[in-house]
Design a protein around this nucleic acid. Structure first.
Length: 507
RNA sequence: GGUGAUUUAGUGUAGUGGCCUAGCACGCCACCCUCUCACGGUGGAGACCUGGGUUCGAUUCCCAGAUUCACUACCA
């Protein structure tokens, strides 16, 4: 048993990192940090056919953005490299040979086409103890025949020889003892001579062993093959140092059934990837949480709570707190449906923690894009400070605070209908007169004067104030009216009222 | 089909035999605040998969079934 906690996140570079994969990485990371252990990032590129250029960089960038720091990996280096499986061919070859030598594996020459035919012919065909005797392999062929075939360059695979009818117990830290009978397992392909690469199962076990991995924390989809992995540890004689297993529940579609997939994001309009992804093959672009305006802290917090809880009602937690509180005891065993609305709420919460100045800095690029200049940071920060409570994303700042930077050019039809009466223009002219007479244009001072004017004339407060708001904002929404006018100033306020009187027509 | 896992409101979850007239959060609704829209505050609707059993007492324990999901490739 390895005493030091060493965990690994082992994605395949076959595309963008899925949000479910991110959560697996996160749980690995939290567990590692909590125990002073190491986090390994291993690239599992043993399927040359599915390799996608750029995917590895994407994985690195995504984890870095989220603050999931890697201790050992392709970029970081480490004492147990290489950390990319395609660079470990020698290691796998040696180990496969060991298994053949000790009788736990054999060479099979059946082609994929032949296997397909078999599956079509025989219902529920499985390459196992019951059928291996009728296939073309080193168990049925003579040693000479096998040698000749290999020498002639015939492609072959190495299969794991599984003894039938044995109950294998997987001790899962989350699910307890799970018993699976070896008869349902097939003689898994461990290695393919066609590309001189192992399959997942072999590479995974060899690497976890050699990299001294103490805990294998992965998705539930691996639970059915866990007994195979245990058998492999035994076959190698590594049973004593076998890691602990944890099979995490899956992230499910928000509606309907099944695992959360890329399509769900497209369909329901939310990202399923941490970063925007440009598929090099199809040219397709998939949205990412970063580009959609999410803060990494919010994504982490949201993801952490999808399948885990601290055991009490606390929801907002920093990475540090998560590391402190994380435990498998409080992980749920069933899949969690992805709730995008809740994700938005987390982002809202985290946005409120940022100072007005910080928010202003994030808002700046959007203003620039709109061609807005001539406003200093203090002005922007004040404007942002007034509306921050109502946004969940930085990009919403424009629709909430745009009027601070640009006079309205259109006016909400619905609000005009409700608040712009026939005598409104007259009242607005009057209001201009009142405003012009105000020297201290601060919020409190001007409010007192304007309200006194309304009261004295017994005007309808709601109608006058909303008409006023309509000319300044363009619709009946936004912060306290006089906070707005204080910021945009007397001159601009009056200008907007005049414009409103000219433009707005009673409906 | 087979094997395994799973099962508290629409969603994420708390709950480890009586404190549960089942708590919290998101979402939804109402009210309050208010010049408006939000925020915030208060309140409301809304759940223990089903059937047996054990027990004085089951959401909690046992059994059976159902449900949902995963796996069942020379993919991971």
């Amino acid at each position: 048993m390895n005493s030091k906690v060493r965990v690994r996140f082992a994605p395949s570079p076959t595309g963008a990192l899925h949000i479910g994969g991110v959560r697996t990485a996160l749980y690995n990371y939290l567990f590692a940090r909590q125990n002073g252990g190491s986090m390994i990032l291993r690239i599992e590129d043993t399927d040359s056919g599915r390799f996608v250029p750029g995917a590895e960089d994407y994985i690195n960038e995504a984890l870095a953005w989220l603050g999931i720091n890697i201790d050992e990996g392709v970029r970081e280096g480490g004492d147990y490299g290489p950390y990319k499986q395609s660079e470990r061919r020698e290691i796998y070859r040696e180990n496969v040979d060991k298994l053949i030598a000790n009788g736990n594996a054999y060479i099979a020459f059946d082609t994929p086409e032949e296997l397909e035919t078999k599956r079509a012919e025989i219902a529920n065909f499985q390459y196992d103890a019951s059928t291996r005797g009728m296939m073309r392999n080193s168990l049925t062929l003579s040693a000479d025949e096998v040698k000749t075939l290999i020498d002639n360059g015939t492609k072959y695979v190495v299969r794991f020889k599984i003894e039938p009818n044995r109950d294998i117990i997987v001790n899962d830290l989350l699910r307890g003892a799970v018993t699976i009978n070896s008869s349902i397992l097939d003689d898994k392909v461990l290695y393919k001579s066609a590309d001189d690469l192992p399959t997942y199962h072999l590479a995974n076990i060899v690497d976890d062993h050699l990299m001294l991995v103490s805990h294998v924390i992965r998705g539930e989809e691996w639970l059915p093959s866990a007994p195979l992995h245990i058998l492999l540890y035994e076959a190698f004689g590594w049973a004593d140092s076998m890691p602990q297993f944890v099979h995490l529940p899956l992230l499910l579609k928000p509606d309907g059934k099944g695992k959360l997939s890329k399509r769900d994001g497209d369909r329901l309009g939310f990202p399923v990837f941490p970063l925007e992804w440009h598929d090099p093959k199809s040219g397709e672009i998939s949205s990412g949480y970063r580009e959609a305006g999410y803060l990494p802290e919010a994504v982490i917090n949201f993801l952490a709570l999808l399948g885990w809880n601290p055991g009490n009602d606390q929801e907002i937690m920093s990475m540090t707190e998560l590391i402190d509180k994380f435990s498998f005891e409080h992980c749920s065993k069933s899949g969690a449906k992805f709730d995008f609305e809740k994700g938005k709420w987390f982002n809202h919460k985290y946005l409120q923690e940022i100072s007005d100045e910080g928010l202003a800095a994030l808002f700046m690029p959007i203003l620039e894009e709109k061609g807005i200049k001539n406003f200093d940071t203090i002005y922007i920060a004040k404007a942002v400070g007034m509306v921050k409570g109502r946004i969940s994303f930085i990009k919403e700042l424009w629709e909430q605070a745009g009027f601070f930077f640009e006079a309205p050019t259109t006016f909400s039809e619905k609000d005009v209908k409700k608040r712009w009466k026939e005598d409104t223009p007259t009242k607005m002219e009057e209001l201009i007169g009142i405003l012009e007479g105000i020297n201290d244009f601060s919020s409190a001072a001007s409010e007192e004067i304007v309200l006194a004017w309304i009261t004295k004339n017994e005007y309808h407060m709601g109608n006058v104030m909303n008409a006023f708001r309509l000319t300044v904002v363009g619709e009946c929404k936004g912060p306290h009216m006089f906070d707005i006018t204080e910021l945009i100033g007397k001159e601009e306020t009056i200008k907007r009222i005049r414009k409103g009187i000219e433009t707005i027509k009673t409906i």
